[in-house]
């Protein structure tokens, strides 16, 4: 019994310790921002790694999600004679929820795990220690650009996902199922509110970008500097990011649309 309690206590303390280290790391990363302003070129490679390399998977996923929404939505809505509202349904689902959330999950899997592996390997191969011995702060030099790169890329990717998805829904709804083109776009524009829907979606994806890159970088930086440690950290990145994104999504949705 006491052994069980001790185990629980130890697990709790470890979790708290990890949380504390993660926040200290975040402070370190944010303190690197002024330095990053003087070296914007460092950012370029990171926007490339997180953003450009994720474009294909994001665009293809967005297209299919939009097409599926078009199909499913049409069958449900046509039962109520409301197929005209297909555009609203597709766009609202994408812009409010699926765009930010699915993008964040895909980025966590595609770019987040890569970030963790990269940073973890740099730690395992003593590159981070090496930088420190060259009197270069590895947090400011290595982590901050990656963090900002992820933060910038996420909303752009989410917007791309939603836009491609709306077009996918249009292709299925208007092109294949014969929903009126004017109704599709007209209802869309009438019902989707810029501030309420689009801006909130962007805020969501910014929050997700923050959390996903933070988790990825922390897991890499905190990984055991061994091959096994790095691979475990990579798994943790995907699991923790997915849970954090979905949990945070609920909180944000409750705050934004809950009243």
């Amino acid at each position: 019994m006491s052994e069980l309690l001790r185990q629980l206590g130890r697990t709790g303390l470890q979790a708290l310790g990890g949380l504390g280290r993660a926040h200290l790391l975040l402070v370190g990363i944010l303190l690197g921002l002024p330095q990053l302003v003087t070296r914007p070129r460092l950012l370029l490679a990171q926007v490339f790694n997180v953003g450009v390399l994720s474009v294909l998977i994001i665009a293809v996923s967005g297209l299919f999600v939009g097409m599926v929404l078009g199909l499913q939505g049409y069958h449900v809505l046509s039962q109520f004679g409301a197929a005209q509202s297909l555009g609203v349904m597709v766009a609202a689902s994408l812009v409010r929820e699926l765009g930010p959330v699915v993008t964040a999950l895909l980025v966590a899997g595609r770019a987040g795990s890569a970030l963790t592996a990269e940073v973890g390997l740099m730690k395992a191969t003593e590159q981070l220690s090496g930088l420190e011995m060259m009197a270069v702060d590895p947090i400011k030099r290595i982590l901050t650009p990656r963090f900002v790169g992820g933060l910038i890329s996420m909303p752009l990717l989410a917007a791309l996902f939603s836009a491609v998805g709306v077009l996918g829904g249009w292709f299925v709804g208007v092109g294949l199922l014969g929903v009126d083109e004017g109704a599709y776009w007209g209802q869309l524009q009438a019902k989707i509110d810029f501030r309420e829907d689009v801006v909130n979606g962007v805020i969501k994806s910014l929050a997700f970008g923050f959390v996903v890159t933070w988790i990825s970088l922390f897991q890499g930086y905190d990984a055991d500097p061994t091959a096994e440690g790095v691979s475990r950290a990579t798994t943790r990145t995907v699991v923790h990011s997915a849970l954090a994104v979905l949990g945070l999504d609920f909180v944000l949705t409750a705050l934004m649309f809950g009243n």
């Binding site: 370029l44 926007v47 490339f48 953003g51 450009v52 474009v55 766009a91 812009v95 890329s153 909303p155 752009l156 990717l157 917007a159 791309l160 939603s162 836009a163 491609v164 709306v166 776009w185 869309l188 524009q189 009438a190 019902k191 989707i192 509110d193 810029f194 829907d197 689009v198 979606g201 962007v202």
Partner: peptide, 22 residues
């Protein structure tokens, strides 16, 4: 490529703002 990505993202946002929303 980064430039193209940023431009595409901004175009997508613009599309959502002007064409999808009100």
């Amino acid at each position: 490529l980064v430039g193209a990505f940023m431009a595409a993202g901004i175009v997508a946002l613009f599309f959502l703002a002007m064409h999808v929303s009100n």
